[in-house]
């Protein structure tokens, strides 16, 4: 992999160059302590120390709501002429964010390709940025604290410069567009990177053992833990909305007042919603909240492993940061594990 350095004093100028690759989106401040990915005009707006944004990057590619087709009584279904032609540059994606996108890539590819997601994804450049974990981060446990694929460029803070890994040809184009700003890696840069890497590793405060979790989940399928979490959960769906890897959606038709034309749309859905597994005729396969909670954990930590070879949780901490009743995934898993030990 091509690796170079970018002195911090050149950072603003580099960001200026990125405009020619698309609209720049990066973390900015929303509330007192909250951040969002949003368009930025220049580097000064970017919150480089943001640990996590409210919504993950999926919002750019798997839209919260989108038109799948326009329909008309006589003409059937038509794909909206543009899904998007707009190019964007996402700056400041953390390793867990990029892992989240890599997981969505797997889901939306496969035997049937979700053209909406992929069309948007193909028009975006991803520039990663290292981060320092806070109390809620457990990406070290999910093995998503480091990323080696899924970005065009990845910046790691090594003091007065960034170490820049170039992941794709597009990333290389972005570097070459501002070639004079970059330097070759020196020995002291390599040392600084390795030192920072250890510092970062040691700064994790939350650790859970996940590797053998699928087996434990099978064993604890009837655990009281699910009842307890079911009692606490409000079925509000916030955890799914903010989850970088929750990809469920529901499809519905919207008819215009003329009664003959309209749109088929999809919007984010959540397996905790009461009607999620409801079928016509009224049978609900997961009528109980505890069964829906259990299903959500099972899908992330057990089912996804069977389907795609890895859990779909990236340890970003958004679900526990946002849960209105304070459900903490690390806590749930810890309880499940300790119940096994008794």
């Amino acid at each position: 992999m091509k690796i170079i350095t970018l002195p911090k004093e050149n950072f603003a100028e580099f960001v200026g160059h990125l405009c020619s690759f698309g609209e720049i989106h990066a973390p900015i401040k929303r509330g007192d302590r909250s951040f969002v990915f949003a368009p930025v005009k220049d580097a000064s707006e970017i919150e480089l120390d943001c640990v996590r944004t409210i919504l993950p990057l999926k919002k750019y590619f798997f839209r919260p709501m989108e038109v799948m087709f326009n329909f008309c009584a006589g003409e059937g279904y038509e794909i909206p002429s543009e899904v998007t032609d707009k190019r964007i540059v996402v700056f400041g994606a953390h390793p867990c964010d990029i892992h989240g996108l890599n997981i969505l890539d797997m889901v939306f590819n496969g035997r049937y390709v979700d053209t909406y997601y992929l069309a948007r994804k193909s028009k975006a450049a991803i520039i990663g940025l290292d981060c320092i974990p806070d109390d809620l981060c457990f990406c070290r446990s999910t093995r998503t604290d480091f990323v080696d694929t899924g970005f065009d460029l990845f910046l790691s803070d090594i003091g007065d410069k960034y170490l820049v890994r170039v992941g794709t040809s597009l990333g290389d184009d972005m570097v070459r567009a501002a070639e004079s700003l970059f330097y070759e890696v020196q020995k002291e840069d390599r040392d600084a990177y390795k030192r920072k890497s250890i510092e970062r590793r040691e700064s994790f405060k939350t650790e859970i053992q996940l590797q053998d979790l699928p087996g434990i989940m099978d064993l604890e399928y009837e655990s009281q833990v699910w009842q307890d979490v079911g009692e606490t959960c409000l079925s509000c769906g916030t955890c799914s909305m903010v989850c970088p890897t929750c990809y469920c959606y529901s499809v519905f038709d919207e008819l215009d007042l003329d009664g003959s034309s309209g749109r088929r749309k999809r919007r984010w859905d959540c397996c905790l919603f009461k009607d999620y597994a409801l079928v016509a005729g009224g049978h609900n396969f997961r009528a109980k909240r505890s069964s829906r909670v259990k299903n959500r954990y099972f899908h992330k930590q057990r089912g996804f492993v069977s389907l795609y070879g890895r859990p779909s949780c990236v340890g970003c901490g958004r679900c526990k940061a946002q849960c209105p009743s304070g459900i903490d995934i690390v806590d749930v898993i810890t309880k499940l594990r300790s119940e096994t030990r008794v």
Partner: peptide, 16 residues
């Protein structure tokens, strides 16, 4: 419950 038929929307997921 199926809304996409192609393994994306999630509704028909049972276990794995």
């Amino acid at each position: 419950n199926m809304q996409c038929g192609v393994g994306k929307c999630g509704h028909c997921m049972v276990g794995y």
